[in-house]
Design a protein around this nucleic acid. Structure first.
Lengths: 241, 241
DNA sequence: CGACGCTTTGACACAACTCAACAACCGTGG
DNA sequence: CCACGGTTGTTGAGTTGTGTCAAAGCGTCG
């Protein structure tokens, strides 16, 4: 049994998919040896940039997004601790999205070549990373479905359900509550809405006694009703699918 | 120089990313040895299904989509010849989307385990497949941005620009025209709109002398204006980034 | 204390949806 | 060959969800 005391949060996550050998764990930890603290709001990757790194997020919140010519922003995802960002951009030669810290955060920059070496040397580790990437992609797809075919209310409910589940998997959420440092502007840019409309939606969720957002924490009042409203099927989030 | 006469369309595509050795090509062709004809409308993968295969599309059009409880449908993508479908579902144990043939089509079912073997035995081939997967994901992201932040008109223009580029890469489109067997209902479900509204948008594109869709073929009248309207940056589609 | 960022609310505008009807097309079978 | 039914496309009128503009409340931090 490999040591667990010094496992990174990423290792814990991948371990739910396949149990990694100590050699594989060692490789994974080496990959994350380079630590970097970043201030909130700091941009780490710029869309269109080449010669970039991937990042493992150790602590804090981040967001990946694209900007349009008219200044509009679409947020793709909110990576949290244990998530990998920019793996895709390593394969395509040029980053297809930007990436910023939402809160003060800790990240590990990783060279693309380093990742490739790990993957070819330890195929099982490669498979685990692929699984994580697939999970991320499934989240983007679910996001697409939400924006395309769910009402603002359903979409917002779904967003918080997914977030709750993800945070709970890393022990940062209970059944009834979790921290969430996202402003209504960010929620709006993620959900394809206006900050003003998000505000109205949040009020409705509050008045229906489903969910309250206040001072950076989300309180869930009626989980069952929320899941029903959102049509939430969390199967794509954990490895036991 | 490896033979090109018997290369599959997938091999051609991957070859633009890295030049494959004959051993790698052989492995790739073996992967595609299992041929299967499917009638239009036929569903090949069902969301939630486990123990599924991936598919390489050789000819014809397909679509991958998700259905919502209320019967609404969101189309994720329209795979065309040379595209791989369902790779992600192989990693996650359960398919996260459905997959149907839009026209009569020819596909190669591929076992997930077979893919994994190819990847571990030929890392460069694995990298090439990863590149293709990254490209597909970038398309989904761009799709998300469109639905979230572009108007119906811009979004539709962008959709056709991307399609034109993809088809042109496999030699199925000229600068001014290509075949497109998608009904307005499908366009609607892809673009997060109503068929009725798509119809109005298409009329507008026609009246502005930008693009005409008629009888399954799309005629492009003003490429430059369309790209500008759509804010189209096709960099994510080809391997020269 | 003022300034700034974020939230909240109201009144109004507009893009996209719904409902309804009809026209064009296509494959099928008589 | 034509008649037919079903699918797809087209158009109009009216509705609604979400965006826009404007203003005020609230917290926090310097």
């Amino acid at each position: 049994m490999p040591s667990t005391r010094f496992d990174s949060i990423l290792a814990k996550k991948l371990n739910t998919f396949v149990t990694l050998s100590s050699a594989e764990l060692k490789c994974l930890e080496e990959m994350q040896s380079n630590v970097m603290k970043v201030k909130r709001g700091r941009q780490l990757t710029q869309e269109g940039q080449t010669g970039h790194k991937a990042f493992v997020l150790q602590a804090g919140w981040a967001c990946s997004y694209k900007l349009l010519p008219d200044g509009a922003r679409q947020i793709i995802s909110f990576p949290i601790a244990g998530d990998i960002v920019g793996l895709r951009s390593v394969l395509l030669r040029t980053a297809d999205h930007s990436f910023s810290a939402v809160t003060d955060a800790v990240v590990n920059p990783v060279e693309g070549t380093h990742v490739m070496r790990c993957v070819t040397e330890f195929p099982r580790l490669g498979a685990a990373l692929l699984w994580a990437a697939s999970r991320d992609e499934a989240m983007v797809v679910e996001h697409l479905v939400g924006i395309g075919r769910r009402s603002a209310l359903e979409r917002t409910a779904h967003f918080f359900m997914e977030l709750a589940e993800r945070l709970s998997l890393i022990g940062e959420a209970t059944e009834t509550e979790f921290k969430c440092p996202l402003s209504q502007f960010m929620l709006a840019d993620a959900l394809g809405l206006t900050a003003i409309h998000i505000n109205r939606v949040l009020r409705q969720l509050r008045e229906r006694r489903l969910l309250t957002v206040r001072k950076g924490t989300v309180a869930i009042h009626d989980l069952a009703a929320l899941r029903k409203l959102a049509g939430f099927q969390g199967g794509y989030l954990n490895s036991r699918g």
